[in-house]
Design a protein around this nucleic acid. Sequence first.
DNA 1: CGGTCCATTGATATTCGTCAACGGCAGTGG
DNA 2: CCACTGCCGTTGACGAATATCAATGGACCG
Lengths: 245, 245
Amino acid sequence: MKLQSIRPSTTVNGCTDCPIRPRAVCAHCNDAELVALDRIKHYKTWKAGETIVHEGAPLDFAASVVTGCATLSRSLEDGRRQIVGLLLPSDFIGRPGRARSEHAIEAASDVTLCTFRRAPFEALLQESPRIASRLLAMSLDELDATREWMLLLGRKTAREKVATFLLALLRRTATGPGPYRTDLPLSREEIATFLGLTIETVSRQLTSLRKDGVIGLDGLRTVTCADLQRLGAESGAEVAEALLP
Amino acid sequence: MKLQSIRPSTTVNGCTDCPIRPRAVCAHCNDAELVALDRIKHYKTWKAGETIVHEGAPLDFAASVVTGCATLSRSLEDGRRQIVGLLLPSDFIGRPGRARSEHAIEAASDVTLCTFRRAPFEALLQESPRIASRLLAMSLDELDATREWMLLLGRKTAREKVATFLLALLRRTATGPGPYRTDLPLSREEIATFLGLTIETVSRQLTSLRKDGVIGLDGLRTVTCADLQRLGAESGAEVAEALLP
DNA sequence: CGGTCCATTGATATTCGTCAACGGCAGTGG
DNA sequence: CCACTGCCGTTGACGAATATCAATGGACCG
């Protein structure tokens, strides 16, 4: 759910220089724990559009996203589908104690994962409070983000949904004062599946925000914004944000 | 988010006979840990309708729900509001490492909490892997439930939303084969705020489901159902459920 | 050059929200 | 005991937001 702009290299082998480590599940590991993780890890890659795990299918590894963007989704039998989470670099995949995935996991762009075999990873989790507590903190952050998304899905208008999505994305790539610019990691269809809308409505709202001068569109995948305040005003400000500036 | 029918007595003082312990954060504690928890715990009660914590306000305790039902909600500045979680007996309140609540917490019915002072509880969490790992498992369950609710909010019709809500409730109170019966822990307005609907739409869908013979309504707060299969068919079956019968 | 995929735009349909009136029930006070 | 009042839920009429259906446009690729 968290949107980050980290784009580390995939050539790292040891963990010492791993660019995602400051935010990943292994962030607070000591040397012994890093060695243990290093021993059970495997880098794997998927092409954009490939399915990493099907909904309800066995998942025999845990993993951290190293590069790229993956989606978590759930579906109804008749095919209606909802993306329930975005996985970006440093995000964690897998559920200790469970052998199958409740969600489909798909590569939105080319994706590299640092995978850990399930059994030894869970054993390590028992022994290493640093890994366990980091995973708890990450899970609670994820829970908060997911609940914020519930507010969006249940109560925001189409325009507010699109504005909120763009704002979250732009905030992650902000390096200084505007103008801000970012590449959309998702197609229109995926955005619609994430926001609980149809592809046509997403398209219309993007056009409308552009015509109103809130954002700029540079090609299909690039969004710019000169004034994040303005975009925020379009996104349906939340009480919690107002209280915590 | 989990719906349970546990209605334990509030007169328990020690933890030994605590009726929620099998499912609570203290489920796997050893005797020493129970003594430590016992030392920092306080039972507190709130009347139906009272606010336990305001959105964004300081929260100086963690807690387990002992009896009753509370809601977690988030709001937009203009007053639109979404319930993002139901807290039922054995559910946990609080976020280790954070001093304020991102959500409003309100008593839907009379509520009793077993509260733990924040600082000593967090200290205990560092020392007691049993508590930490139980909290992780509960958080991950909560995350799954919240994501399932995202699918409901983003993709289900009003009728399916109401049917899903009733089904979840009835399943928790099931003791054998039908007919099933349960009391709604929420008012029509709270149900609407949970399902991303208006109160009128909830009312219409309940009436419609009753007229179609899917459910029975006995007074305002009591729902019966002779055929959970039928109710399930109305609730928009999920792929994950189909795969895991 | 033609085909395919993705996005945009327009016309129309549908669902659900909004506004308004009403009814039942409980509590209150005469 | 009975009117009065307020709250909650139901029902109906209407309107607005978004989905659906359909046509078109543009980019990429063989």
